[in-house]
């Protein structure tokens, strides 16, 4: 007696329905977001112009408000953040991958980094407040902001660089050592150049994260309303996400709906540019290296 066609008459239908539900889940989230961003673009329309990019914030008129201070502040911030994080992050990755044996010490540091990656950014903000702003008396300036953001993105840079170094085949290490290169020569001349595309992708990911973070900046007490450009590293500053946050909190609907939307578009465009650079670098340098 054949089993074919027996029992579970709806098995096939259920299977097909399940497939559609799953597909719906995948597309719905993307679709919702696209619709929302489309709406936001509509709100920003007419507000995002040259005047918006070159003006300071205004408390009087939404039409005179702009992102000049925030834009410059953000650029300062991410430049300093990259300056602090990249050497330390890549250095830590090199140490963990190339120097630390599979010891308990390495396992300990590795677990520590994984946990740091999961610490909410607001907690880093409190740390920055206690350590840099109050403890080291830096004030809520660009330097304190950049140092705080560096702590936030350090695990990202370390983990991405480790991954990139791990992807360099062992034969390269062996070949270099067999030629009488020292450990550091091998790392500097062979491993870092080979891992560069991966490391740069990680760094750009980290910078994008730093560019979008508002919570740590609020926590260290960065100013919301700034009518000048920071001249030194301890000057007060504002940043794009912070500025957007303030506008969104504003009860005036022109600020809340339109100026904030225009600010968000500027922020998103910057993020897209950064990611485009990452894709380009990966393509440009990744192409040359095929194992």
């Amino acid at each position: 007696m054949s089993l074919a066609g027996r029992g579970r008459p709806y098995a096939k239908a259920a299977s097909a329905a399940f497939a559609y539900v799953c597909a719906l889940c995948a597309f719905a989230s993307v679709a919702v977001l696209l619709i929302l961003i489309g709406q936001m673009l509509r709100f920003a329309w007419g507000w995002l112009d040259f005047q918006f990019l070159t003006s300071f914030d205004s408390q009087l008129s939404a039409h005179r408000a702009g992102v000049k201070a925030a834009l410059v502040g953000s650029v300062y911030l991410i430049a300093l953040t990259a300056l602090f994080t990249v050497p330390v992050g890549v250095g830590a990755a090199v140490y963990l991958e190339e120097y630390a044996a599979r010891s308990r010490w390495r396992g300990f540091v590795q677990t520590n980094i994984a946990n740091l990656a999961g610490v909410p950014s607001i907690v880093y903000g409190i740390l920055g407040l206690g350590l840099f702003v109050r403890g080291m008396h830096l004030g809520a300036g660009v330097l304190a902001g950049a140092l705080t953001l560096s702590l936030v993105v350090l695990p990202v840079v370390i983990l991405a660089s480790q991954e990139a170094l791990r992807a360099v085949p062992n034969t390269i290490r062996q070949a270099s050592f067999a030629l009488g290169a020292t450990k550091w020569q091998t790392i500097w001349h062979q491993l870092l150049p080979a891992a560069l595309p991966g490391i740069m992708t990680g760094v750009i990911l980290a910078i994008s994260r730093a560019l979008g973070e508002a919570a740590p900046l609020v926590a260290i007490g960065a100013a919301g309303f700034v009518m000048f450009l920071p001249a030194g590293v301890n000057d007060k500053f504002t940043a794009l996400p912070l500025q957007i946050y303030n506008w969104t909190e504003n009860a005036n609907e022109e600020f809340q709906f339109h100026v904030a939307a225009a600010g968000i578009i500027v922020l998103l465009v910057m993020l897209i540019c950064l990611n485009a650079v990452a894709v380009y670098l990966r393509y440009r340098f990744g192409k040359r290296i095929r194992w």
């Binding site: 034969t171 390269i172 070949a175 067999a178 009488g180 290169a181 062979q190 080979a194 040359r288 194992w291």
Partner: peptide, 26 residues
Amino acid sequence: LRKRVGMVFQKSNPFPKSIYENVAYG
């Protein structure tokens, strides 16, 4: 020691660099 005892591996493993740089590396 490794400068005096050279080694060639089973699978060729040139560095992902130019021909010149490969030879000049040692």
